[in-house]
């Protein structure tokens, strides 16, 4: 967005269009057959037998898919709310204070889930939660919610922090000048201004939680299959287009969310 205003225009670089098209092709081509075959009439994911919505209907009526989908949405909702609240606090603490020792370390630690391989986190959580499960005999959803909240924090944090950094400090300073208490200045000035960032962060966190496989597979207790782990379980036997249909819906939700995030974060420069 900054680039657009400068005189250097990347769009005019030689080969830009071709390279961009190639990248989009590589990114989206593999998804095309998946989506196309979700509308297949036949039982097959590689042999076209005509258009039909039967697999969408089958997935919709499949009790296992239903309960896994509800579980996914509940976990993602709760986890993204927790992650967003925490991420907002961290974002404020790393941008709206005087620089202090250890600020960079905090930044790095919050973003740890982006860097540490997911399988490492998954195995670590498996071992830790196994101990807690044995000690407390509690097997509920708290484990999944905690795990999801934790790895969603950086995804919520980054857009919120970007928003805070892009915001003009003048308004906040003005509020303080006019004797607003820090809390009041935050409530009336900072918070409303950073709201688009918070929404973007929450939605990103929601999508990330919704799509997670590895950590969920290792953390889930009995009867806690989410939609992605349910789909993973189907792979050992021959796959029907039902999986394509579910994938297409998940893909649709993700695309929708990302589009919303894009519009939310675009507003700030307008």
């Amino acid at each position: 967005m900054i680039l657009r205003r400068r005189s250097f225009v990347i769009k005019r670089m030689p080969g830009f269009t071709l390279l961009a098209l190639a990248c989009f092709f590589a990114l989206y081509m593999p998804l095309a057959p998946l989506v196309v075959y979700s509308f297949n009439e036949g039982n097959n994911i590689a042999l076209w037998e005509g258009f039909s919505l039967r697999w969408y209907q089958a997935a919709w009526e499949n009790q296992l898919v239903q309960s896994a989908a509800i579980r996914s949405i509940v976990v993602a909702t709760i986890a993204s709310i927790i992650a967003t609240v925490l991420a907002t606090m961290v974002a404020l603490a790393t941008t709206r204070t005087r620089p202090y020792r250890g600020q960079t370390i905090i930044y790095a630690m919050v973003n740890q889930p982006l860097v540490v391989p997911e399988i490492v986190t998954a195995v670590a959580l498996l071992i830790l939660f196994a101990l807690i499960k044995q000690a407390t005999n509690y097997h509920g959803y708290a484990y999944l919610v905690i795990a999801h909240s934790a790895f969603c924090i950086p995804f919520a944090y980054l857009p919120i922090r970007a928003r805070l950094e892009g915001m003009d400090r003048v308004l906040e300073t003005a509020a303080a000048d006019l004797y607003a208490t820090p809390w009041r200045a935050f409530k009336r000035v900072t918070l409303p201004l950073m709201l688009p960032g918070i929404f973007a962060g929450a939605m990103l966190a929601f999508v990330i939680s919704l799509d997670d496989v590895v950590i969920t597979e290792f953390v889930k207790s009995a009867g806690q299959d989410t939609l992605p782990t349910y789909m993973l379980g189907q792979l050992r036997r021959s796959i029907t287009p039902e999986i394509n249909a579910i994938s297409t819906v998940l893909l649709g939700i993700s695309v929708l969310m990302v589009t919303l995030i894009f519009f939310l974060s675009r507003k700030k420069t307008a």
Binding site: V123, L126, I127, F129, A130, L131, I132, K133, Q134, H139, E217, F218, K220, S221, A222, G223, Q224, D225, T229, Y230, L232, G233, L235, R236
Partner: peptide, 19 residues
Amino acid sequence: TDYDSNETALAKVRAGGHG
């Protein structure tokens, strides 16, 4: 509850507390 490989199942059961 589903699993997708012998390895996953073994890892979870081995860790204990699986329910």
